[in-house]
């Protein structure tokens, strides 16, 4: 569409629509940020903004009483999500290469399996995993969460990556093979550089998914050894047992949203292409 042709009025309408979208997307985030700057009694002021902006809630979770709880949860969340992402991207890269590129029976089986795993209700496998983990000592450990996280991240990694890989000009690989390179060499020297952006995007999307987990987090952990942030939010407490930890929860929510926002700001174009790749262009 040639924007030069647009009348002033139409342009204005586009701006209005655009701003509506932005408000839609950011309003709840703004609200939780505002909430995190309220004092305990200000929380009940029923207004959007705090009367006084204070850092108390951040003090509480970062250097105050709740720091053990929050910081260890943050460490767990970051560590577990990164490791799960790494493993699933590595496994998925190999699998997607094979699917996009090689002829072998069972290709369809793998894709169907990935589909089935992706639609799997997490809650259905939590109990058996809990029992198994207890018996083999994985309960409340990092691997105890990393392994189930693979069930969330692996399928999407396989699809996104196969979609990316299908767009790669494979003639180059064939050319390399004609020049005497083995399949493996052709893969490493020609395809890897072409595939890296796709792999990177897949990693970001996987990370979001692992970062988002709640059910595994509350069911398969019980101490600060492995409890991730979403699960830890239920452990905050107010000044006493019966007071609401609203402020601490809001502050923690903001802190865990920051990395997500940074990733989005830096890589929005890639994430969008990653998310939309497979759907139609397949």
């Amino acid at each position: 569409m040639d924007e030069g042709q647009l009348s002033r009025g139409t342009k204005a309408w586009w701006w209005v629509a655009g701003i509506a979208v932005i408000v839609y997307a950011l309003f709840p985030v703004a609200w939780i940020v505002s909430l995190s700057f309220k004092t305990p009694s200000d929380l009940a002021n029923l207004q959007f903004l705090p009367t006084n902006w204070v850092w108390d809630n951040y003090d509480n979770i970062l250097v105050g009483d709740a720091q053990n709880l929050f910081l260890s949860a943050l460490r767990n969340s970051v560590g577990i999500s990164l490791i799960a992402t790494f493993i699933s991207v590595v496994l998925a890269t190999f699998a997607a290469y094979a699917i996009a590129r090689l002829d072998f029976p069972g290709k369809r089986l793998i894709l169907t399996t990935a589909l089935a795993v992706a639609i799997f209700p997490v809650i259905s496998i939590v109990t058996p995993l809990f029992n198994l983990w207890r018996n083999i000592g994985l309960y409340d450990t990092w691997p105890g969460l990393i392994i189930p996280y693979l069930s969330l991240t692996l399928p999407i990694s396989i699809w996104t990556l196969s979609a990316f890989f299908r767009q790669i000009p494979w003639e180059l690989e064939q050319a390399a093979q004609v020049d005497g390179a083995t399949t493996w060499q052709a893969f490493r020297k020609v395809i890897v550089p072409l595939a890296t952006p796709g792999v990177f995007t897949t990693a970001i999307i996987s990370f979001f998914i692992a970062w988002n987990d709640f059910v595994y987090g509350i069911s398969l952990t019980s101490t600060e050894a492995a409890r991730p942030v979403p699960a830890a939010l239920a452990f905050f407490t107010g000044a006493s047992q019966f007071e609401e930890p609203t402020g601490a929860i809001a502050a923690a929510a903001v802190v865990v949203t920051i990395p997500v926002v940074i990733l989005v700001l830096l890589f929005q174009r890639r994430i969008v292409s990653g998310l939309t790749q497979g759907a139609v262009k397949g």
């Binding site: 709880l69 101490t223 600060e224 239920a234 452990f235 905050f236 407490t237 047992q241 930890p245």
Partner: peptide, 10 residues
């Protein structure tokens, strides 16, 4: 010490 959740049932 090791912390338990806030809700008694939890």
């Amino acid at each position: 010490t090791s912390l338990l959740p806030r809700e008694a049932s939890a």
